[in-house]
């Protein structure tokens, strides 16, 4: 197979953030679910359809809630519960096809900012973050689907 042949076939990218969510409760979770939905809806508008997976996990000491969004008709699906607490670990990522990775990354930041949830994100430079697009680890003969990695944890 020639280089990036399957990259052309899949055309997948991913972006995400992690950090802490503060003052976590059911209202916070609702806000975060909405952010997940907003990103997926943006992808649908941008790419014509949402072919991918938007997901997050809010967890703390072996407990946690995962929210998956694969199908906009179904909407965000929650698994598990997490009771209210001062602070919890937070990871949020979206992988999808037929979109630009940089724009996806910005969309995620905007959606989370607009959510009103109290987040302390790792490497959050309030849009002054630079993008490491040319992942040198992504080898010449990669057949993985052509996703690029957007690392927000670039030495704060």
């Amino acid at each position: 197979m020639r280089k990036s042949e399957s990259a052309d076939m899949a055309g997948g990218v991913a972006a995400g953030v992690k950090g802490k969510v503060l003052n976590y409760n059911s209202d916070t979770q609702m806000r975060l679910d909405k952010a997940l939905l907003a990103v997926a809806e943006w992808i649908e508008a941008e790419a014509g359809m949402f072919l991918g997976h938007a997901k997050m996990c809010v967890s703390d000491g072996g407990e946690g809630i995962t929210v998956n969004l694969v199908d906009l008709g179904t909407g965000p699906e929650r698994h598990g519960i997490l009771s209210p607490r001062r602070s919890a670990d937070f990871a949020f990522m979206v992988a999808a096809t037929d979109i630009d990775a940089h724009e996806l990354e910005h969309e995620i930041f905007h959606a989370l900012e607009d959510s009103g949830a109290f987040l302390e994100l790792e490497g959050d430079h309030h849009h002054h973050h630079h993008h490491g697009c040319d992942d040198p680890s992504h080898g010449e003969d990669c057949d993985c689907g052509g996703h690029h990695h957007h690392d927000h944890s670039h030495g704060v």
Binding site: G12, V13, A14, A15, G16, V17, K18, K55, M56, C57, S59, G62, E63, G64, I65, T66, H79, G80, D89, A91, F92, M93, A95, H147, H149, H150, D151, H152, S153
Partner: peptide, 17 residues
């Protein structure tokens, strides 16, 4: 192995014990 630098599945497995 999640796509990209931010993983969610690891935390999901952990939170299910």
């Amino acid at each position: 192995n999640d796509v990209g630098s931010i993983g969610v599945d690891g935390a999901t497995f952990e939170s299910k014990g």
